[in-house]
Every structure is written in C-alpha cells, then in structure tokens.
Amino acid sequence: MRVLVTGAGGAIGRAVTARLRAGGADVVGLSKDPFPADGLAVVVGDAGDPAVVAEALRGGADAVVHLAAIPSPERDPALDVFSGNTRATFAVLDEAARRGVPRAVLASSYALLGMPFSPHELHPPYYPLDERAPAQVEDPYALSKAVDELTGEMVHRRYGTDVVALRFPFTADTARLAEAAAKVRADPASGARNSWAYLHVDDAAEAVWLAVTRPLRGFHRVFLAAAETLSPLPTAQLVAAHHPGVPVRAPLPGRRVPIDTSAAAALLGFRPAYSFPV
C-alpha cells in the first residue's frame, strides 16, 4: 500500500506517517518546509500547488491523507487562512481523484461548528454533539473546514473516490495535553468552547490508519474524541454551568465527553486508547 500524507511534518502528520509505516505502508510525505524525516520520502512544497501534488503522486498511491492546513485563524490573515486551506484541499483531492486514487482521508475539525474561534460566546445546539449538529460559522478557519468537507463530498460524487473527513478536536501529545488539562483544571470555562474534548495524537494516527484501511464506500464525516473530558469535574456539571439551557439529549455520566463518537466506531471500528489522567 502506498500512501501520500500532506502536512507530514506536523504533529499529527508525524504520528500518522509513523503509524502507516508501522502497518507496512510505503509512505510519501508532502511538507511545506523540510523536517527530520527519518528515511521518509518527502516532497517539499505547497499542497495548494497542483504541480507539487502531482510530483508527490508521481509513483501512484492507494490513498491520500490530507493534513496540511493553517491550523487556526489567530495568527495569519483571514484571507490566507480560508483561501490557503480550501485551495490545498481542492488541489490534493482533485489531483488524487483524477489519477484514480481510490481513498482519501481529510483532516476536518470540531472547530467547524464555529465555537472555538468565534468572536462571540456561542453555545452548541444540543449535547451530545453529533454529525447532524448545525454549524455556527463566524471565522475563516471554521469556514475553510466546512468547505473542505464539501470538497470531499464533491470529489466522491464526481470521481467515485471514497472519502472520510475526520473531525479532530484539540489534538496533541502528552506534554501539551498536560498543559491543557492544567489550564482547564484551574479555569473550567477555558474548555467550554471545545466542549472540554481532546484526542491524543497517537489515537488520531490510529483513526487515520483505520480510515485508510477499513472497507467502506462513499463520503463520510465523523467526530473523534477521547472518551472522557480534560476536566476533573462531572460533564453534566460543566454543561449546566457554562452552556446553560443547552438541551441534553442523552445522559452524560461522570466525565464522559459530550460528543457522540458512535459514527466513528461504527464506520471505522475506532475506539480511543488514551485517557488523560486528571
């Protein structure tokens, strides 16, 4: 199996390439900047440039994993965030699909719902959140992810490519999760925009592996998250305090994350292995 991974030099990208290689895949990385690649074949260039993507796909591929993106709207100009992210997604998926690559995995985001980066205080439509929850987009990053998912859906309809859009929450390694957990412990409100959700980067890599290798057809969008929140407080207490009045449609016992990840479990057989000790 040959897999192209864009954004291969990022935190998720490095974990994904390691997991794919451990599973026996021949991996080609695409990265905007050089990075220590440990023997990985890397094409350096912009994922939004079709010629660069074509070079990375020169040897063919059984799947593409598109992770390259500006990860937030907080530092770069809004136009760069939106246009850069959507251009890269279109370039990668369209180039791959026209070359007959049968599977694409797309890094979408919980932030697509609009809450994390909104200039206003937003509340979810209900808990537990699921893939039917309507977005409240107020920032260019969330907008780019909404368009990215539509691009994946279009590519499936036009070319027949099977596409999985993985909606990552805050995703990090153990050290960064420890920092985030300490912040949430000191100020539970700081985690409200993210629904106190997280995913360890190794679990993110496992989800990608499953999205690349599991038999499936069509276009799918699924939420991912660790089973429990980053807060030591009961989830029901957090929701009542920081999202008052939001309908709770199913019980949230203990520290259960208020995101329904059953679609990822059903489609991919994914169940997170990592639970951060708070």
Rank of each mutant, 00 (worst) to 15 (best):
Q237L: 11
A182V: 05
A205P: 02
E179F: 15
P71E: 03
V65N: 12
E131K: 12
A182E: 14
R19P: 02
A133L: 09
D173Q: 01
V81K: 10
L129C: 02
V246G: 00
T171P: 06
L40F: 05
G114S: 07
E149Q: 14
P244Q: 05
G254Q: 07
E149S: 13
R103T: 03
V105P: 10
A192M: 05
A227D: 12
V212P: 10
G114R: 11
P169W: 15
I259N: 10
S144G: 01
D260V: 06
L150H: 14
E153Q: 13
A165S: 15
G13R: 13
P125V: 00
R167D: 07
Y274D: 00
L216H: 14
R255I: 08
P258W: 11
Q237S: 14
S144T: 02
S109K: 10
G13P: 11
T261M: 11
E95P: 06
V208E: 08
L30C: 03
F270Q: 03
G7Q: 01
P169H: 14
L252W: 02
T86F: 05
A142Q: 07
N194Q: 15
Y126G: 04
A189Q: 14
T151D: 02
M1K: 10
A135Q: 13
R132L: 12
W196G: 01
A186P: 02
A236M: 05
R75H: 14
A56Q: 06
G218N: 05
G269Y: 07
A146L: 15
H200E: 03
G100W: 06
L30I: 05
V137I: 15
T235A: 04
D46L: 01
P73E: 10
L150P: 00
P128C: 09
A236C: 04
P247D: 00
A263K: 12
L143H: 01
A51R: 10
N194I: 10
A69P: 07
T261W: 10
V105L: 08
A88H: 01
V208W: 14
A96F: 02
V163F: 03
D148I: 09
A205T: 02
V64G: 01
D33Q: 11
A69G: 09
A91P: 04
V155F: 07
R249V: 09
R185M: 14
A182C: 10
A172P: 12
A146Y: 13
G59P: 07
T89V: 03
H66L: 00
P188I: 08
A227M: 01
G13S: 10
G114H: 08
A236N: 03
S118Y: 07
A227Y: 01
A178G: 15
P188C: 11
P169D: 09
S144Y: 01
V155D: 12
L122I: 04
L30E: 04
K32S: 11
V164H: 13
R103K: 07
G269Q: 06
R157P: 09
V248C: 08
A41M: 06
D139R: 06
A96L: 04
G23H: 11
H156I: 04
V184K: 15
P244V: 03
T6L: 08
A25I: 00
A265G: 03
R271P: 02
L238K: 08
D260G: 06
G45D: 00
L224R: 06
